[in-house]
């Protein structure tokens, strides 16, 4: 009898090291985060701005910077945007907003969303107390004012610690998911977000100092913002390299426009500040432009990362390439 020779069943090794591009009809293997990117992006931006505003105010106060009173006051007041507007944005993005208080049922160290809730709570309490003491001190007799300033000087320390957390935990929030682009480079993404927060806080306060006529502090804050931008730039190079080696960088094209603004906001301030240092008459305008560019760039960095992440979750080939044994943490 003659049998048709049977082809051997598919490759004996079902699990291979190299990904050959197979997908299931090109269908996504993951679900993108159901966040409203403009809303959550705005929150991440505000959280960074406000958290760092508190850090800068506290550092200026503790380091006894010359003529720091205005900066400290503005920093403390600016930080109140996170507990107010920021919280509203967070609740708005819930799909069952009336149950927002359930976030306070538990504290879960494995969930950056839970960690962030408590950071925001702590920040709101200490920052709120600091800002309240600051405002009240302007209205009462000098004796009481001294006491209130003392209170603010105490509460600003935990507020600044929480502020540092508020400016960075949002990166951890994105990284601690299965979305390939967010998960690929947890450390450098966190450095990007943290330094971008620092840049935005310094830029906003620098602009305020300039308009309040405090040139020297404004210059120092501008320098701080540029230093933060330099760190951010370095970290973004690391992130990009990671995305490329993991083969998931194509998803970034989905957020090309936002990313372009973010890149301009990271690089343009250097040129603008250099020009501002040379030109005497238009220096203020150029510096303001630099600050605004930093703020816009910081916002777009966050929304850009969110958009690109959503796209990477929708691309099965990116996820499968990412979810290979070679990419597992050692």
């Amino acid at each position: 009898m003659n049998f048709i020779p049977l082809p051997s069943p598919s490759a004996a090794r079902p699990v291979s090291d190299a990904y050959d591009g197979t997908t299931y009809y090109g269908r996504p293997a993951l679900k993108p985060a159901p966040f409203e990117n403009s809303v959550v992006g705005s929150y991440i931006f505000l959280a960074g701005l406000c958290g760092v505003a508190q850090v800068i105010a506290t550092v200026a106060d503790v380091a006894r910077a010359p003529r720091r009173e205005g900066l400290v006051r503005r920093g403390r007041l600016l930080s109140m945007l996170a507990p107010t507007l920021g919280s509203v944005l967070l609740v708005y993005d819930l799909h069952t907003p009336k149950r927002f208080y359930n976030m306070l049922r538990i504290a879960r160290p494995t969930s950056p969303m839970s960690i962030g809730t408590w950071i925001l709570m702590g920040f709101s309490i200490f920052s709120g107390a600091t800002a309240a003491a600051q405002v009240a001190a302007d209205w009462v007799r000098p004796g009481w004012a001294r006491l209130l300033h003392g209170i603010a000087r105490t509460t600003q320390v935990p507020a600044a610690v929480a502020g540092a957390g508020l400016g960075t935990y949002t990166a951890s929030l994105l990284s601690s998911t299965s979305t390939p682009l967010w998960a690929a480079a947890p450390k450098s993404l966190a450095v990007q977000f943290g330094s971008s927060s620092m840049a935005s806080g310094a830029a906003a306060l620098a602009m305020a100092e300039r308009h309040a006529g405090s040139r020297s502090l404004a210059r120092k804050l501008d320098t701080l913002a540029l230093a933060a931008l330099a760190v951010e730039l370095g970290a973004s190079v690391v992130s990009e390299a990671t995305y490329r080696t993991r083969g998931i960088s194509a998803a970034e094209d989905a957020a090309a426009d936002t990313r372009t603004i973010a890149q301009i906001g990271t690089i343009a301030p250097f040129a603008l500040q250099m020009l501002a240092g040379k030109g005497k008459r238009s220096a203020g305008i150029l510096s303001d432009l630099a600050s605004l560019a930093i703020l816009a760039g910081s916002f777009c960095l966050r929304t850009g990362v969110m958009e690109a992440g959503d796209e990477s979750a929708r691309r099965p080939q990116d996820y499968f390439r990412f979810a290979k044994p070679g990419n597992l943490p050692k």
């Binding site: 598919s10 079902p14 699990v15 291979s16 990904y19 050959d20 197979t22 997908t23 299931y24 269908r27 293997a29 760092v52 850090v55 160290p109 494995t110 969930s111 950056p112 960690i115 540092a164 957390g165 400016g167 960075t168 935990y169 990166a171 951890s172 990284s175 601690s176 998911t177 299965s178 998960a183 947890p186 450390k187 450098s188 993404l189 966190a190 450095v191 977000f193 943290g194 330094s195 927060s197 620092m198 760190v231 970290a235 099965p316 996820y319 499968f320 979810a323 290979k324 044994p325 990419n327 597992l328 943490p329």
Partner: peptide, 30 residues
Amino acid sequence: DRPEVYNLPEAPTRPSDRVAPSLLSGLAAV
């Protein structure tokens, strides 16, 4: 057949493993 054929990842990770590294790096930068 390979997991990808069934729309499954071969080597998924545990996201919570990334909480500490990213939090600490971000805080270090700030």
